[in-house]
Every structure is written in C-alpha cells, then in structure tokens.
Amino acid sequence: MEFIQTLLANQLVVSILLSALPLVFIILMVLVVLYTEMKVAAHIQDRVAYMRTGWHGVLQPIADMLKLLQKEDIIPTKADKLLFRAAPFIAFTGTYVAYAVLPFSSIYIGSNINLGAFFLVAAGSLVVIGILMAGWASNNKWSLFGGVRSAAQMISYEIPTALAVIIAVMITGSLNLQEVTKFQDGGIGNWLVFGGPLPWMQKLMLMPFTVITFFILFVASIAEVNRTPFDLPEAESELVQGFNTEYSGMRFAMFYLSEYANLFTVSAVVVSLFLGGWSSPFGAFMSGPVWGVFWFTSKAFLFILIQIWIRWTLPRLRVDQLMYVSWKVLTPWLFVCIFAVGLILVI
C-alpha cells in the first residue's frame, strides 16, 4: 500500500499511467468498431457476419486479436529489416499522440495545450511517415506503390483539413480544443456547424459556410484515414493491401490498430470542432463531465457509423479523381468559405 502511495506521489509514474489511459480506450474502442463494422458491412450486403463466437459473435473481435498476436511475424529476406520493424510503431505513435489533445470531457484532456487543433494536423503527418517507411522497407512493388500513394493522398488532403480547422479557429478565436468546445457549449444551436453562439444575423449568414466547411472536413478526414472511397493505398484489388502486403502478426495488428484509432481521431476532430465536442445537445440538461464523455464518444461513433456506411456503399476513386477532388473542389471551396467567414466576422 505504502509502495503504491509513494509510486503515485511520483510525478513521472503518474504521468505515464495517465498517458496510458487512451491506450485502454483505443483497444476497447477498436474492438467495438471492428464488431460494428463487420456487422454493418454484412447486413448491408444481406449477410449476417459472424454468429458463432458468443451471442451473435460478439467475442469475435477478441478472438481475431488473439489470433493476430499469436501469428508468426514474417520479415521478408530482402526487406530493410530495421525500417520494416520500426514502421508500425511510428505509424501507431502518430496516431497515439493525437489522443493527447482530444477533449474527452470538460475535465479530461490529455494535454490542454493552446495549439491543440494545430497539433492534431501535425500529428497526422507522422502516420504518413510510418506508412511510407513500411512501403519502402518491404521491398515489394505493391507496398511501395501503396506507400507513395498514401503519402500523396495524405499530403493533398492535409490542406483541406487544415483550412477547415482554420475556419473553426477563426470563429472561435482559439486553437485550444477545450476552448473551442466550451465556446459551443449550451445546446445544439450553439454548435459551430450552425454558426456558433453569435448574434442571430451573423449566425444566419455564417451558417451556409460552416455547413460546407463541416462537410468538407468530413470528406477530407475520410481521405486522411485511407478509407473507402479513398482507400487507394490499400486497394486490395489492385495493390494487394498496399503497404500492408508483407506485414503479418503483431506488426500487422499495429497497423490495423492505428488505422481504427485514427478513424476515431478524425471523427473526434470533426465532432469537437463543429458539433460541440462533449457538450450536450440539450443545453444544461444531461451535461457534466461524465455525460461529456458519453456525448463525445457517441457523437464520434455516429461519425464512425457514417464512415462505415459510406465504405460499404461507394467504390474506390481513381488516383486522378482523388487529386481532382482535393485540389479542384475541396480546397477552392474552402478558400471561398475562409474569405466569406472572415468578411462576416469583421462586419
């Protein structure tokens, strides 16, 4: 007991323990998302997905995970062994650091830094490096293509994401995600997607632009996490899973985990920037730190559900279409929005 007390008195130990908290969340969340994804996918295709492990197969994600952990870790002979080994960890680090600035509730946020939104955009670039590294180190043409595609895609879509974040920041006047969320507290009408808590004239004028921005941010975030219809880096039908091709066992699991954790991150970004983060849609009703966690995760899950729904609806884009969408549609529209929002805020 005394030992634990001295341990808890140590600042370092406490901060390590606290920073491991999101890991627990990620793993639980990924299990739930995996199950949901498989079930939704199956039912969309009039199938039923797994039914045998537990009631309606609820234990299947756990079984899958155990299977992945036990599998042999195969490293190709001609691969660059060091980089091959390091790549999954770098990709996962990039995913994980983003959780530091997600405001789960009004009292829980990993690190309440003033540049949270900016940091989130930067953290995404680390994932790109991990994927590029994996693609290169596998010494396999599919992997290399996957890596290069992924990098090109993420760089192109980082621009719309950053611009959309800037619009949110322009309205709230803070880069701190906690502040951004607080700004939108107090009911569904105060959410940024509906113009935020501004005088109603301004609000009405802002609304079309915030809705467009919100929508673009959502599209760009799907592209950032490499999901269908933007899953060119994996493209199992042409690139044999892309950068994942040579990975197996634990390392593959890392990529997998990182991908699904990223799914939550981008949804959380959309939610905390435009949908009021942890704030309750009913104003003071059902609000508070604990309800905050509930609202935050459930809003993010709603977005994950929509992403799953989109994934099982749309086919993959072509590479040139991908670039067209980013550079000729999303980015110019966001410039228009930035200009308009700036103008409205000034007058």
């Binding site: 939704v40 009039d46 199938r47 039914m51 729904w309 099982w312 609806t313 749309l314």
Partner: peptide, 28 residues
Amino acid sequence: NIFHSLYTVVVGMRITIKHLFTRSATVQ
C-alpha cells in the same frame, strides 16, 4: 459534376441503408 456526384452518393447510400434493414439471406 459536384452536384451530380453528391446526388449519386446519396442515392447509393439510400440503397445500402435499405439493405441494412432487410432480412439477410444467409442460411446458418
């Protein structure tokens, strides 16, 4: 093009959500 693609996405998503709630054809 923009409006057409948005419209077709909505059409597709309507079809898939309909299937989400139809009985699945699987025989166990």
